[in-house]
Amino acid sequence: MNYSYYPGCTLRTKAKALDVYARRSAEALGFTLEEIEDWQCCGGVYPMGSDEIATKLSSVRALCAAREKGQPVVTLCSACHHVLKRVNDDMKNVPKIRDAANAYMGEEVPYTGETEVLHFLEVLRDKVGFDTLAGKVKNPLTGRKIGAYYGCLLLRPGQVMGFDDPENPKIIEDFIRAIGAEPVTYGMRNECCGGYISLREGETAKKMSDSIMENAADQGAEMLVTACPLCMYNLNKSEKLPVYYFTELLAEALGVKEAAEA
């Protein structure tokens, strides 16, 4: 099965690693990420206002493009995923937003949230299956103690995101197990890294990242994995533990890391 792929602005620039390792790994697992033509930036933050329409349209366009191809849309960046998933939910369930957005869009058939929005991790869990993934691992990352860092955007609000139990998630731990490493569970894995506040208030953000890192290290983690370029940036200010994109470890386990880097 192939998927419509929405990379988002940062995966074309500062977070190329998140993207290239994912594409290669997908091929190794037997599916292709088909990049949506002319996708536009999601804006990074879900516009909460019930009368915010224009700010939701870039997401609606991507969702319509995927509908055209009859494919689910796959995301990698936590923020893109959050925005697309919530806008899709609005298009499905909030008539006021749906009608106004459709009036702008002028699609022949109004868009009503038909596209399935999947994070790459959900594809691994629900479409590929972690057992199948484990069977395809060539270089198990045996002995590596990895803390999953979820952050906010993949999980909350749980009712809309439907990603995992927002207070006690385990999808990334299961992923870590599937690639042969050892997951280290720690309490702060779903607390905020400071998000966009780090632009002007670095100290405040650093305090938050420091406590996450400390908590993970105390529990025995030797490294963290994330799906979010902004979490990566904020966590890296702490310098306590190395942080990797989950796709890099996936590519390594599947034996396609060098090929992806070439």
Binding site: K14, T55, A79, L199, M232, Y233
Partner: peptide, 15 residues
């Protein structure tokens, strides 16, 4: 050097 574009777009949307 390391700042992701995501940080700039998010900050502009919120601030």
């Amino acid at each position: 050097e390391d700042m992701p574009q995501q940080l700039l777009v998010s900050a502009f949307r919120r601030y």
